Amino acid sequence: MNTPASLHPVQAAEDLSAYTVIDVRTPGEFAAGHLPGAHNVPLDHLGAALPALKAAAARRTLLMVCASGNRSAAACAQLADADIPATTLTGGTTAWIQQGHRVDRDTTAKATWPMERQVRLAAGSLIVAGLALGTLYPPARWLSAAIGGGLVFSAVTNTCGMAAVLAKLPYNRPRTADLDATLQALGR
């Protein structure tokens, strides 16, 4: 996989209006704080959004954003496979905020924890449950081993299966009407 073009937050902030900003985090993460003017297209909905993103890319450069840059880099790769050029924000919204740039928050939507925090809670809880249950039923310790192995695999491959599963939970899913409105706005 080729490394996508990247843009440092300082560069992006100089003329944010030159970009169509696409935030690929879950709707709850997006509501908690996103770049001004960003559109929310969760990573697992990117395939359905390709026609609208192609239209948007014809007008302005797409700037893909997530919390750290990992999901936005994956989005850039997926877009590159569809011959849609895109750039990723180096360090994501975390770096954007650390640089002192403004974020918009959706006060009407219920904000959820960032995906990384959800993964840490789920993984930690499953490991503790496996160890606790292992005192009564020793084979239950394999649950802890499996989760630990999954975390190692996640680090080595820079992917996260647990995040993919957690993204499917109802509070991490976009409302159909919201996603449709976003895609219509991008397609114009």
Rank of each mutant, 00 (worst) to 15 (best):
residue 72 S to K: 09
residue 46 L to N: 06
residue 28 G to T: 07
residue 82 A to Q: 06
residue 16 L to G: 07
residue 6 S to L: 11
residue 29 E to P: 13
residue 62 L to K: 04
residue 92 G to D: 08
residue 4 P to V: 04
residue 38 A to H: 02
residue 9 P to S: 13
residue 86 A to S: 13
residue 71 R to N: 04
residue 75 A to S: 12
residue 48 A to S: 10
residue 56 A to D: 10
residue 75 A to E: 01
residue 33 G to K: 10
residue 97 I to S: 14
residue 38 A to E: 05
residue 101 H to Q: 14
residue 8 H to G: 04
residue 48 A to T: 06
residue 47 G to Y: 00
residue 78 Q to S: 14
residue 7 L to M: 15
residue 88 T to L: 07
residue 52 A to E: 04
residue 7 L to H: 11
residue 43 L to I: 11
residue 25 R to H: 13
residue 71 R to W: 08
residue 71 R to K: 11
residue 87 T to F: 01
residue 50 L to S: 02
residue 48 A to G: 14
residue 93 T to V: 15
residue 47 G to N: 07
residue 100 G to S: 06
residue 80 A to M: 01
residue 13 A to Q: 09
residue 17 S to Y: 00
residue 60 R to F: 00
residue 79 L to D: 09
residue 26 T to Y: 08
residue 9 P to H: 14
residue 25 R to L: 11
residue 83 D to E: 14
residue 94 T to H: 06
residue 27 P to E: 03
residue 48 A to P: 00
residue 44 D to W: 09
residue 36 P to L: 09
residue 36 P to D: 12
residue 73 A to K: 07
residue 5 A to R: 11
residue 35 L to D: 05
residue 84 I to Q: 07
residue 96 W to Y: 05
residue 24 V to A: 14
residue 28 G to H: 09
residue 7 L to Y: 12
residue 96 W to K: 01
residue 65 V to A: 05
residue 9 P to K: 14
residue 68 S to P: 00
residue 31 A to N: 07
residue 25 R to Q: 06
residue 103 V to R: 06
residue 39 H to L: 04
residue 53 L to Y: 13
residue 85 P to E: 12
residue 59 R to L: 08
residue 23 D to P: 06
residue 84 I to M: 08
residue 75 A to Y: 05
residue 32 A to S: 15
residue 33 G to H: 08
residue 71 R to A: 09
residue 38 A to W: 00
residue 34 H to W: 04
residue 55 A to M: 08
residue 9 P to V: 12
residue 26 T to V: 07
residue 68 S to W: 01
residue 48 A to H: 06
residue 28 G to C: 12
residue 93 T to F: 00
residue 89 L to W: 10
residue 44 D to M: 11
residue 41 V to A: 02
residue 8 H to Q: 15
residue 49 A to L: 07
residue 35 L to H: 03
residue 35 L to T: 12
residue 97 I to V: 15
residue 9 P to F: 14
residue 6 S to P: 05
residue 42 P to F: 05
residue 28 G to Y: 10
residue 90 T to S: 12
residue 101 H to C: 07
residue 23 D to Q: 10
residue 96 W to T: 02
residue 18 A to Q: 13
residue 77 A to S: 13
residue 29 E to C: 09
residue 51 P to W: 15
residue 61 T to C: 04
residue 10 V to I: 15
residue 49 A to E: 11
residue 89 L to H: 07
residue 62 L to F: 11
residue 12 A to Q: 04
residue 12 A to R: 04
residue 26 T to K: 03
residue 10 V to Q: 15
residue 72 S to C: 11
residue 51 P to Q: 14
residue 99 Q to F: 03
residue 71 R to L: 09
residue 50 L to T: 12
residue 73 A to H: 05
residue 47 G to F: 00
residue 6 S to D: 15
residue 44 D to I: 03
residue 12 A to K: 02
residue 41 V to D: 02
residue 15 D to R: 15
residue 76 C to G: 06
residue 4 P to F: 06
residue 12 A to G: 07
residue 37 G to F: 07
residue 58 A to R: 08
residue 30 F to Q: 03
residue 56 A to F: 05
residue 92 G to I: 09
residue 99 Q to K: 03
residue 103 V to H: 03
residue 93 T to M: 01
residue 21 V to Y: 01
residue 9 P to Q: 12
